[in-house]
Design a protein around this nucleic acid. Structure first.
Lengths: 328, 328
DNA sequence: TATCGGTTCGCTCACATGAGCAACATCTGG
DNA sequence: CCAGATGTTGCTCATGTGAGCGAACCGATA
């Protein structure tokens, strides 16, 4: 396309998009046939001169979603716009997007296994009353029931269930126990065992991931110490999923600690038909990468920046080209 | 439009604009009829959720141009995009736009009266060889021929003429003379008188405007002193057109100074069928306003920000509602 | 000058889309 | 509870638009 044509294309684009003229009219104005005008417009779009943006708090980025699905073999992906947004705003939008995703799921899951945390509480808050009818919500990992943040974990599950006019089944157990024996004992307890049984049978799972640093909820809740986290990080931990700390490859970092963690195991999540991960924000990039590349989720809800990170060539898609584990 | 519809509209817009799906396909996906989809899209556009931008150095803003034409009764207006651009970039684009405008003029002017200055030199540089055939270019005000910037004024006219394969007729006179008598004598000189005669008969005029401050070319060239400018500003001057200082209402500030200025008078410009003003940049907002509201130009080439200033309610359109002169 | 390869042109045809309209649902005030 | 007003829905039909296809064109080469 030469200089003159480019100018004409721009002129045509202005008349077409800004002045809402038909291609025929533009042809008359610029002394061209309407086909030439059509071709110029196609060229202008092709060369990226026309930029269409959807400006709305709930707008998503479909192209990124398609690429994420393809690269990582995800069943679905939801990417929210994050340009020029503050971190809390992004969290809010991702939560909203996750809520919208749940609401729009077909078939509607009858039993939903949920984790807990700030992110999931946000999702629960964004759900609308009547988002579903008769959902059974089951907690899939131990909660913060013993400490100062009492009730948080259960609140999330209860709210999700309530708004979907269904029932919540809580997991009455700490997240991580001090001794393996205690953990085994708790799991043998009939109530706990029944909940876990039900959790395993859930149609879909909903969870987030935490960063491996001293600000973690698990440190906050007293399940592990800041020193423990430092140790985990030293051994390669990038974050936790359902209270289980994983490295960049998605492998459990400390199997002994993992054995003392109550709830579904990560392999059980990996086997699920539908597991929705809601993770966003720059601090979580490393965990997000680990979750996605190690096949922990079939659906990812995240922000634009994280999606860009995942789509950059630096990130290998382990799920598809199974061999290479080098992901950092 | 309720909440649900708005969400659907956004979803539809994403599928339509980002995924290039047809309205029918979108209907299938969202379980709607294609008409509903069409209506939602129309609604989304109406509410401004869809923003289409033409990203190209030469892109213009047609809507602003239309409003300028209507508000000030201009024959034409050209507004270049200026968002996120530096001042020199904007100057360059405006010059390019003015050059494009000249090139595209129908009928092609046979005689073009031009002024001089940095802006017009920029326009001359942007013109392409062969932009016209046989244009007569006439200088319409006195130039900087006596001082260190010698040749600048003539260079502009000559370049425009040369690139339009025509001839330049220069005005061999200083811009402003010290004594009224000298000015009268010069104007009586046959060569000068002939040039002015030819200038008056030009089909179109092309000029810019200067800011009234010490950085002015006239101070630089020694025609007036910085003190003179301060005095002019104190008396209400906002800038100059063809070396003639005007106030916010477009009136000559100092008639004695004006009488010593060589070249066409502002009223002669006002009477012209086609007078193209090329003015851009924040420092020139005041002069731009004065030029446009006092009917000094029939065509305005400017940047987005200046156009926004002109279109703000603060600016009264004197040309149309003749009475009110309160423009500050 | 004749011929070739590639590009662009104007056109047909099928599909996508918006305007306009009647039927229907929903709200409102007597 | 009903009549009228208002808004919404699904449709027909005219118009707008893009894919595909020979014809024409252009520049290079033998």
């Amino acid at each position: 396309m030469d200089e003159t044509d480019e100018l004409l294309a721009i002129r045509a684009a202005e008349l077409y998009y800004e002045d809402a003229k038909t291609q025929e009219e533009i042809g008359a104005i610029l002394h061209l046939t309407r086909w030439k005008v059509g071709r110029l417009l196609a060229r202008a779009r092709e060369l990226g001169f026309i930029r269409i943006e959807i400006v709305h708090p709930r707008a998503r980025r479909l192209s990124a979603e398609r690429m994420l699905r393809e690269k990582f073999g995800l069943k679905d992906a939801v990417v929210v716009q994050s340009e020029h947004r503050s971190a809390p705003e992004i969290q809010a939008r991702v939560a909203q997007a996750a809520a919208d995703y749940l609401t729009g799921m077909r078939p509607v899951p009858r039993t939903l296994g949920v984790s807990w945390g700030r992110t999931l509480q946000g999702v629960a808050d964004c759900l609308r009353h009547g988002w579903a009818t008769r959902v059974d919500v089951v907690q899939i990992n131990g909660g913060v029931s013993l400490n100062r943040m009492a009730g948080t974990a259960s609140a999330t599950a209860v709210e999700i269930a309530h708004k979907g006019s269904g029932q919540a089944t809580l997991l009455p157990s700490p997240a991580i126990l001090e001794h393996l024996e205690t953990k085994r004992a708790i799991e043998r307890d009939r109530t706990v065992a029944q909940v876990l049984e039900k959790a395993r049978a859930a149609d879909a799972f909903l969870f987030s991931a935490g960063v491996a640093d001293a600000s973690s909820v698990h440190v906050d809740s007293g399940y592990i110490t800041a020193a423990d986290v430092d140790e985990l990080v030293a051994r390669g931990a990038v974050g936790d999923v359902l209270g289980r700390y994983i490295d960049a490859a998605g492998e459990i970092v400390d199997t002994q600690l993992d054995d003392r963690t109550v709830g579904l195991g990560l392999d059980e999540i990996r086997r699920a038909a539908t597991s929705i991960a809601v993770i966003a924000g720059r601090p979580k990039h490393a965990v997000t990468k680990a979750v996605v590349t190690s096949g922990l989720c079939t659906v990812l809800v995240t922000d634009e920046e994280s999606s860009a990170m995942l789509l950059s060539d630096q990130v290998a898609a382990r799920v598809l080209n199974g061999g290479s584990r080098r992901v950092g």
